[in-house]
């Protein structure tokens, strides 16, 4: 399988000369097409920074990020915006739906900014809504539907453009465990049927247990990598817990 995402020694420093925060201190990894990959770490570990860098809304201090073979660290602002709308899909923890638009319009927005002919838009939105089981709520406003449904709408918005890479930032963070489970299952299903690649940032071991592979980040570095082989989700979950315990057990975090 070809690599859809390749990061080479990413470093990200914040601040100026006198006061530097080292968010990422050299991270390299590859993601294959169709993979469902999780990124875990405690808060402050740099996982959101990593996601922001990959999603091109933040720039790296040094290093390279290649998505579909294109080096996004060398693009200007305009090309980056173009790249984002053509190749990436976003799912945020707080959904980030526009409250003034109906669910249908929220999904269609991703297509209208791509200047897709209006005739195709309706068909594509309906199709993705069917796949995510939200066909009935399309005419409703975000505030009229449940959190789980909102996040499905957000997923639909991210996927309707058929992006090469979907970036999800704590997608289950604002959901109850039942909705979270259902959403993650839908995600799983999409990975299989659409050959979508998903990179999910989470600190929830339960959410992470749905992934194929998990990267553990600590203090801006890749700390550990866990690949799900043939074991059940429960077994994978237990292994994740072990790593989390190992990371958290470090004396640095306690003091």
């Amino acid at each position: 399988m070809p690599n859809i995402l390749q990061t080479v020694n990413i470093v990200k420093y914040y601040g100026n000369k006198g006061n530097i925060t080292k968010a990422l201190t050299g991270i390299s990894f590859d993601v294959e097409k169709g993979e469902y990959i999780g990124v875990m770490g405690a808060s402050g570990s740099g996982k959101t920074t990593l996601l922001n860098c990959i999603s091109t809304i933040d720039s790296v201090t040094s290093g390279h990020i290649l998505i579909n073979g294109q080096n996004i660290t060398e693009m200007d602002r305009r090309s980056l915006a173009r790249f984002r709308r053509e190749h990436l899909g976003f799912v945020f923890q707080d959904f980030n739906l526009l409250d003034t638009l109906t669910c249908f319009e929220n999904i269609a927005l991703a297509l209208t900014i791509l200047k897709i002919p209006p005739r195709q838009i309706e068909k594509r939105v309906k199709a993705i809504a069917q796949a995510l089981n939200i066909g009935e709520i399309l005419t409703k406003y975000p505030y009229q539907v449940s959190g789980g449904q909102k996040q499905r709408v957000a997923c639909a918005r991210a996927l309707v453009t058929n992006p090469s890479l979907v970036l999800a930032d704590e997608p289950t963070g604002a959901l109850d465990s039942k909705s979270a489970g259902a959403l993650l299952e839908s995600f799983r299903h999409l990975v299989h049927t659409r050959a979508a690649t998903i990179l999910m940032v989470t600190h929830d071991a339960f959410a992470a247990s749905h992934c194929d592979r998990i990267l553990f980040i600590r203090d801006g570095k890749l700390f550990y990598q866990l690949v799900r082989a043939t074991e059940t989700r429960k077994q994978f979950f237990d292994r994740i817990i072990e790593v989390v315990a190992l990371m958290g057990g470090d004396s640095d975090d306690v003091s």
């Binding site: 526009l98 409250d99 003034t100 638009l101 319009e105 269609a108 927005l109 297509l111 209208t112 900014i113 200047k115 209006p118 005739r119 838009i121 309706e122």
Partner: peptide
Amino acid sequence: CKGLYLRNLNMFILRQINS
């Protein structure tokens, strides 16, 4: 007229004003 409504940010603009 969907052709106009679903073009560029038209629906966003209208919703924005309406809201």
